[in-house]
Amino acid sequence: MTTPALEARNVSHSYGARKALNDVSFEVARGAFCVLLGLNGAGKSTLFSLVTRLFALRSGSLAVMGCDLQREPRKALAQLGVVFQSRTLDLDLTVAQNFYYHAALHGIGKAQANARTRELLAAVQLGDRLDDKVRNLSGGQMRRVEIARALLHQPRLLVLDEPTVGLDIGARADILKLVRGLIASEGMSVLWATHLTDEVFATDEVIVLHKGFVRATGSARALLEQTGAMDIKDAFVTLIGEGAP
């Protein structure tokens, strides 16, 4: 049996007395597009901070491609591509310089980094913006650059935290299409955190997170059957037992 791309076992995390994650367990299968669905404050960003080791895991376990984050952190991080909710590009550097810096941080030499940068920027239709300052790109273009940069070191799992926040409808659709395409073209697995139910496809795997608890996991289709809802939005509302997002 193949190990999952991401495996969370009994993960809990608190900020002082407030518990942000409560005994969270789930798996992201290899090659899956898995949506982590939850309202703001559900614990999605906390989970991301734990997966990316920005926070220490104090309870439970996390493994990326079978590498335990506590025991083999460097091996796990090497297989992980991350797009955070807040932008992490250096606005004063050019697109190429941002890529070069990221490549260096992964020990990738200049020649290899240049070739991969061109290839990835072409894939996100920004091949002609190589020497532009990031500051001069639109919000949607910056997001595409960040996604391309996250793929530079050829990770096996891409995790994205609300990557479409603040983008218009067209840019949102472009980003979704791009990332879904990566599963086929790069053979990778994706964990996509969002609070927008219209970003979920029937074939996607879904993890419903609410107030730090996992309320449901399974394919979007299975959740519809389980709740008897007409669409994923209704299913989500039923599962969390609150008003619509």
């Binding site: 080791r53 920005l54 955070f84 250096d90």
Partner: peptide, 18 residues
């Protein structure tokens, strides 16, 4: 605050080295 530090800390090299 701008998030750039996360890029550094996500590197697979040991944190002390970074």
């Amino acid at each position: 605050e701008m998030g750039n530090m996360r890029v550094l800390l996500l590197s697979p090299f040991p944190r002390w080295f970074l």
